[in-house]
Design a binder for these strands. Structure first.
Lengths: 101, 101
DNA sequence: TCGTTAATTCGATAAATTCGAATAATCAAA
DNA sequence: TTTGATTATTCGAATTTATCGAATTAACGA
């Protein structure tokens, strides 16, 4: 597995961030990473096919929402909260404070 | 022109709101409505075809972001700020405070 | 080296986006 | 009331994006 691209969050637009979070599966992933801390893709799995989940992680990663590091056969994902807070003050806190649907 | 559907904002999910705002054109429309107040579709026009703009307004409307009322041949659009604030406390304020890209 | 596990890539199908052209709705002037 | 101008929506086609299952890649451990 080659290393994955992680953008500088300063270069990410607000529209890109909202696009990444504007999907129920991706928003749920972000919420769980915020609440439960870093974890693998498979532990975050849900109702979609694993290839689709991989696609969702790619979008989250390329929007600067998550950081993924290799660990054995797994990829451990974490929310880039501090960087997002700096780039988009108050946004993630407000989003994460909204009650689940 | 028949009347348009406007959902109860209480029924709108956060993912739907973020999906609606997760497009550069639609985000710009919301920002301008917040900054400049209500206005017609055409005064908000931009780089996209008018049929595309009409589609963007439909998405914003169905996500509870904008309210559109008829006025002559125009449609006057406004941001449903108070209702959004009640449903998603702090979210719109944080988003609108982010500097333009 | 063989399995096992975890995740990505590939190829096909389904769904959404975009555009220009055509249509609809409203108003104002003749 | 009919005609023309303005504004916005709807339609149909082309492009792009999303989703799935199958195949592949990568890393580990027996």
């Amino acid at each position: 597995m080659r290393e994955l691209f992680h953008p500088d969050v300063q270069q990410v637009s607000l529209a890109s961030l909202l696009y990444a979070l504007g999907d129920p599966v991706r928003l749920e992933i972000a919420r769980r990473l915020a609440r439960e801390g870093e974890q693998s893709c498979s532990s975050l799995c849900c109702e979609v096919a694993k290839s689709t989940l991989s696609h969702h992680f790619k979008i989250l990663r390329e929007a600067g929402v998550v950081f993924s590091r290799k660990e054995g056969t797994q990829r451990i994902n974490s929310l880039r909260k501090a960087e997002l807070d700096q780039r988009f003050p108050g946004v993630m806190d407000a989003l994460l404070a909204v009650a689940d649907d």
